[in-house]
């Protein structure tokens, strides 16, 4: 080459996302299988709803294990909440849900991820589809929205379609009901395995008819976020595309086992 194009441009090397010591300030029992750890993280740089953190545990002999967990809380400079579903045969989640208490410390790094995210400047409408603990990053979005000044909030209406097995498995159950008191939030729940008496929500797995009934019209160009088990995510994403939503506006996060 002759024109200097082989000279590397000066690149500002991005900072490494460092491990931080987080101190647990509260433990909230969400369901029989899910707990929220509220943590104080010194110098937390803030985050965007939908991002996750990596949590690292170190055994006394130095063995380490890491897992990723979605952030549940709205952006804040000091407090961070993650909600962990306990997998009975998991390596990390039983320790996080059973062994840790207020005052304990754990290492984490983040925030991570720049795609499955929503920030208020993106506007609405929002269509959030969650299954089980897939609600967690979606709740971060709803909490972010709820913290906005009313006029901005009003420009980002949100619909949540939330699938759980049973009433006692509904993570953030009370808060979801409270959120729905906002006229800009529509919460639709389905309980796929068992329902309490008097249940008026859906009682089946998410399907095309349900999505057609609940989702904002494709002409409104909603921002769609789907998070849950693979089967739910595959089905919902496929059907929303068939209903006419642009594939590029359908953002998905699937989880396999993250024990």
């Amino acid at each position: 080459m002759t024109d200097g194009s082989d000279v590397a441009p000066s690149v500002v090397r991005p900072r490494r996302i460092e491990w931080r010591a987080a101190t647990i300030t509260d433990v909230i029992r969400e369901t029989a299988h899910a707990k929220t750890l509220v943590m104080d993280v010194p110098n937390w740089p803030g985050h965007t709803a939908g991002q996750h953190v990596d949590v690292r545990l170190t055994a006394e002999d130095g063995y380490q294990a890491q897992r990723s967990y979605s952030i549940a809380s709205a952006p804040s400079r000091s407090t961070l909440a993650i909600t962990i579903e306990r997998l009975d045969d998991g390596e990390v989640s039983p320790y996080l849900t059973d062994a840790l208490g207020v005052g304990d410390r754990v290492e984490l790094r983040g925030p991570i991820g720049g795609y499955f995210v929503w920030e208020p400047s993106m506007g609405g409408p929002l269509f959030l589809v969650g299954g089980g603990s897939g609600i967690v990053p979606l709740m971060a979005m709803l909490r972010t929205r709820a913290a906005l000044p009313a006029p901005i909030r009003g420009s980002a209406p949100a619909t949540l379609l939330y699938s759980s097995r049973a009433w006692d498995d509904v993570i953030y159950r009370d808060e979801v009901i409270t959120l729905a008191e906002d006229p800009g939030v529509n919460v639709v729940q389905t309980l796929t395995r068992s329902q309490p008496s008097g249940w008026t929500g859906f009682t089946r797995r998410i399907d095309a008819d349900m999505l057609a009934e609940v989702a904002p019209a494709p002409s409104l160009r909603p921002h769609i976020y789907i998070c849950g088990p693979t089967a739910l995510v595959e089905t919902a994403a496929q059907m929303l595309v068939e209903l006419g939503h642009e594939p590029a506006r359908v953002k998905t996060e699937r989880f396999g086992p993250t024990g």
């Binding site: 491990w19 010591a21 690292r56 545990l57 170190t58 055994a59 006394e60 130095g62 063995y63 380490q64 294990a65 390596e91 320790y95 062994a99 410390r105 754990v106 290492e107």
Partner: peptide, 10 residues
């Protein structure tokens, strides 16, 4: 690293 007491890992 913070040692997680009682964590054995797999």
């Amino acid at each position: 690293p913070i040692i997680s007491r009682g964590f054995r890992g797999r």
